[in-house]
Design a protein around this nucleic acid. Structure first.
Lengths: 228, 228
DNA sequence: CAGTGTGAACCTTTTCACAGCA
DNA sequence: TGCTGTGAAAAGGTTCACACTG
């Protein structure tokens, strides 16, 4: 076993393993090899073994890993043995959808508050919680002990909301707004940008089309009778 | 300039630069240095220069990059000079939200169809398009010349929908379902997993809490009178 | 002389390959 | 014998630092 601090790339994969493990646990096997876990998670087995080795030596040579025990260890490492109260800022389409999304609760993330500025949505009830005004952020964060803030506002409002979150004491932000936000060093930000994902796909799609053209061109030439 | 094929990491950043450039173009300056573009995109200037050098030598020493020209070049490289017809599978909360999301259209991604299986939503109109049955996928793909498929179904349906998309001729998939999907080699998949993002944030949040405890412990000890 | 373009150094991540253990 | 755990090699990505140029 190594000492503290897991590589970033590994942290990004632990939730994937966790999901696969939970599914496997439901389907029966109590033990699993790195090879099989790798298949379920969509990576290769060397990566699985190296990643898991950062948590400790929880496998058994010649056998594999005990599924239930490994689930527990990954959960502990990720800090999922506790519940995390989450606040969403922006009650538009996306904020709306996320507040009703069942997948969060199942994984220990409880949406405890929803804030916005538009008078139209204030007070509205969405998925069991009512929309409050963003001015009340500090009080809400204290009241609900909010740990994570999710930004679902339009791009121009993102920085302001981020500033308010930081002031209110939030130290982890998930940003869905298509804008960069700057925060103090002690605050973690992760960004999810839907249209960037599409743009990346477009790049590879275009590349495939270009290659096909070249290939077809060659194929067509190959059909030409060889000049003799 | 290098030859073909841009590193993956660079492809992932080009859309970020593009967004920053477009915003800058609206605000006036016709020319920008790597230093300033880096600030706007939230990276460092060396990275900007290296990334842009993969596209060609489009900067001017002592001056910087011409904003309009660079926008054009990045767009061309990403394949954004054309429109990309997009199909969404799954008209639940998220599919709903995405179909109404304005950010896509603005960047050349047109949602042309929405498919689902539940009789309840079929025929319903969302954001100008009506929900069709997933069985009609092949016809829809042909009719609309769909290039990119977005999966917004529950996890258990994801693989089936992916298979249908591939059969219908789609070669680029954006997967929002919390499940791994396997596709033939010639198909690109990108995955966006909302609860994985939260889990990653939870890991770092927990780590910060642990560090604070250690620090406070030391601080408290530091306040003790030195034994003499 | 300000600022690009880029080799070279450095760091992170992935993959290989195998010793060592149940 | 089968599969983990891990050094060591390879690949990929980032940062440095500076020659070069408009």
């Amino acid at each position: 076993m190594k000492e503290r601090s897991i590589p970033e790339a590994t942290v990004g994969r632990l939730p994937v393993y966790l999901r696969a493990l939970v599914e496997i646990a439901e389907h029966g096997p109590t033990t699993i090899s790195s090879e099989n876990l790798a298949a379920a998670a969509g990576v290769n087995s060397a990566k699985v073994r190296k990643d898991l080795s950062y948590l400790g030596s929880y496998g058994t040579r010649g056998v594999g890993y005990d599924v239930a025990y490994l689930i527990h260890q990954v959960r502990r490492e990720l800090g999922l043995t506790q519940d995390w109260p989450v606040l969403i800022a922006g009650a538009g389409n996306l904020g709306h959808a996320l507040s009703k999304y069942k997948g969060f609760g199942a994984r220990g993330f409880r949406i405890v508050a929803l804030v916005d500025v538009l008078p139209g949505v204030l007070g509205q009830r969405l998925g069991g919680i009512s929309v409050e005004h963003v001015d009340d952020l500090p009080a809400i964060v204290r009241r609900e002990d909010v740990a994570i803030g999710v930004i679902c506002t339009p791009a121009p409002a993102a920085q302001d909301v981020a500033d308010r979150m930081v002031t209110a004491g939030i130290r982890s932000i998930l940003n869905f707004a298509p804008a960069m936000i700057v925060v103090p060093e002690h605050v973690s930000v992760r960004k999810v940008d839907l249209s960037i994902e599409l743009q990346i796909l477009a790049y590879y799609e275009q590349r495939k089309a270009a290659l096909a053209t070249v290939r077809d061109g060659r194929a067509r030439r190959d059909l030409q009778p060889v000049p003799s």
